[in-house]
């Protein structure tokens, strides 16, 4: 017990993934359900729902951690050039 404690201090703060998840939920704009005030939160992360753009919000902030190469997308040249089938037009 004692050994572990001193080891922890030399390693700095511990990282708690539950706390991390809570912070992420806040960052992503969790809507906590208001009408359940009287109910004790079970485990913390159980209630509420995330907005539709939650993961986009996180992605936008996290982008700068990545040095991802942009990729090139095109339509022309992605299939064989083929003339359309002849049209029989009655007029």
């Amino acid at each position: 017990g004692k050994e572990k404690a001193s080891q922890l201090i030399s390693e700095g703060s511990a990282f708690d993934s539950t706390v991390f998840a809570e912070h992420l939920l806040s960052f992503m704009g969790l809507n906590r359900l208001e009408d359940e005030d009287d109910e004790p939160p079970n485990g913390g992360a159980g209630d509420g729902y995330l907005p539709k753009d939650a993961w986009h919000r996180l992605a936008r902030r996290a982008e700068c951690c990545f040095r991802t190469a942009p990729s090139f997308h095109y339509m022309m040249g992605s299939f064989y050039a083929e003339p359309p089938p002849p049209k029989q037009r009655l007029e």
């Binding site: 090139f72 997308h73 095109y74 022309m76 040249g77 992605s78 299939f79 064989y80 050039a81």
Partner: peptide
Amino acid sequence: ALVNMAETDITRMTSDYAD
């Protein structure tokens, strides 16, 4: 717009859409 101008075996390897 950034465009592609070639139609070759390489450009047809694009993976954005299936055949």
